[in-house]
Design a protein around this nucleic acid. Structure first.
Lengths: 303, 303
DNA sequence: TAAAAGTGTGAACATTTGTTCAATGTATTG
DNA sequence: CAATACATTGAACAAATGTTCACACTTTTA
């Protein structure tokens, strides 16, 4: 009630916060907060009537250089929160362009994906969201696969599927028995047949990454020896984008890289200096079809 | 081209002017100006999804107290440019609510009307705009009746009519011969049969007002002696809202107050302390049907 | 009824936005 | 080719916006 009046006075009539506060008999601070709330709640909608992309040159260059379908390049800024927001907004835009009514979307877990999901708009797409792999235990730092799927389902009036298995099983046998579970099987088959894949990439820095963060130094060394440069949904790949197999890989519960390649739209959202090498590998191996990144990363990829 | 990228970075991605300037290699000043241009050009559209009016209490009270159809109350602010803009926006909103497709709109000349016209949105209403009275000679300070009609016609893809006669003829005879002109007659008949009337009100302060500003002190004295408290389209009225006739009135070329009353929607846009008395009179005499004013004026009218 | 949680205020401060002005280019015109 | 108009920059400043904190007030909870 008050919010609407404040928003109209500010955006339609051009008064300042102070003037509105005086007219309405409240504090300026409150006006500021009401306006922020009005913007966040969607009461105030700002539309930029423009088709052009922000970094058309870089996007075009990425498409040509790596033979992908499309690229989106977000601005790079020093301040982390700003950079996050800009990246998230662009990722959400790209994703909402890709997803069609009724699409099945496979979700790879990563902080970048979580970021994108947080900016995804409300749209009645009625899409289905399926995890690409099992989940890690313990305290997930805001990036829980079920939560992502549920959130997207809510925003698109669609449905979310649950993969009741760990990302990394305790043993090869445990992994096999997980795969034997009908519920797990069903969801994995669904993921393999998805229309759209959305995933982030993990690098090989010690202690970083959804899966790598849970491995021992020895396990990481072993992966490096086998040539791993990064992972996607828990599946590691080498500089050519080929799967790195081995005892660890046998314990992962999730779609394989080979199976992923049959998904027609494979969007990867990743940025930052540590992601350049994994990105190059994933692009080289054809794991990626579409890319969302930021200018700095784009330029590094184009060197 | 640059403008669109800047607008998207600012409004969609939330970067600051400085950050955008750095990314694009231009000065911050230029970013600021491009953004202002983007807003003015309509490239950036800000919509407040809200139905409530700003001062519902005052509007309701005005409607009940004076038995009018509707009232719109704009915020009052000290800074003139802000106050003008707020008033203009609300006036434009009210007018665009009233005008229907194909409406014939009679326009009374006043600075307030000019202000409202300047904020009128583009809308394919295909309405016709007709002056209510002749025009004054000399340098019109931005409020030329033809210009107003033409501007509104352009914004609504409608048509503008021209009344080729002075507001105040040199003599009664001159006025009569003006009325005899077929072109003048035609337009005045059209104005009398309009669906909507939009006009401002003039007060009686010396040197003020479209018509009054061109009269001698003696003429003004005469009007005051006859009880005039204000005018609408060059026609003066007394405290009861009745026409003040006399030698001056006979020289005016325009629709009479009596004829105006047959227009179904009679919107008056007026505000300020000097307009309170004329407004009360016009409301009392039923000259006005709908009102746009500001809070301060509204409260004075409600005392 | 007392404690706790929530919300608004006022003041101080940091940051961002908007404006102005002189200086410097960069087109365009005669 | 010179002259003129026009746009951009950088710097300085003014104004508006956004944030934080201590405090007051109200409502809810225990």
């Amino acid at each position: 009630m008050l919010m609407g009046r404040v928003a109209r006075m500010y955006y339609e009539h051009g008064l300042t916060h102070q003037e509105i506060a005086n007219l309405l008999g409240v504090s300026r601070v409150r006006v500021t907060r009401l306006l922020a709330e009005a913007r966040e709640s969607g009461m105030v909608e700002i539309i930029v009537h423009v088709a052009e992309s922000l970094f058309a040159d870089e996007e075009q260059a990425l498409v040509e250089r790596y033979g992908i379908k499309q690229a989106w390049v977000a601005p790079s800024v020093a301040e982390a929160s700003k950079a996050d927001r800009a990246f998230a907004v662009l990722g959400a835009e790209s994703l909402s362009q890709i997803i069609e009514k009724g699409s099945v979307v496979a979700l790879g877990l990563s902080t970048a994906v979580a970021l994108v999901v947080s900016s995804f708009p409300m749209r009645p797409l009625e899409a289905s969201f399926v995890p690409l792999a099992g989940s890690t235990g313990g305290l997930a730092k805001g990036a829980n696969p079920h939560q992502l799927a549920l959130e997207l389902a809510a925003r698109t009036q669609g449905s979310a599927f649950h993969l009741p298995a760990p990302l990394l099983a305790a043993s090869t046998e445990a992994a096999l028995s997980a795969y034997a579970d009908p519920g797990v099987k069903e969801v994995l088959v669904m993921a393999e047949g998805a229309d759209v894949l959305v995933a982030g990439l993990g690098g090989m820095e010690a202690g970083q990454g959804i899966l790598l963060g849970n491995l021992t130094a020895d396990q990481r060394e072993d992966l490096l020896r086998r040539g791993a440069v990064g992972d996607m949904g828990g599946r590691f790949f080498d500089a050519a984008g080929n799967a790195v197999t081995g005892p660890l890989d046998d314990r992962v519960v999730g779609v394989t890289l080979e199976a992923l390649k049959s998904i027609p739209n494979r969007l990867v959202v990743a940025r930052g200096a540590t992601k350049v090498t994994p990105l190059k590998a994933a692009l080289a191996g054809g794991l990626v079809n579409m890319l969302v990144t930021d200018v700095d990363t784009a330029r590094a990829l184009l060197l």
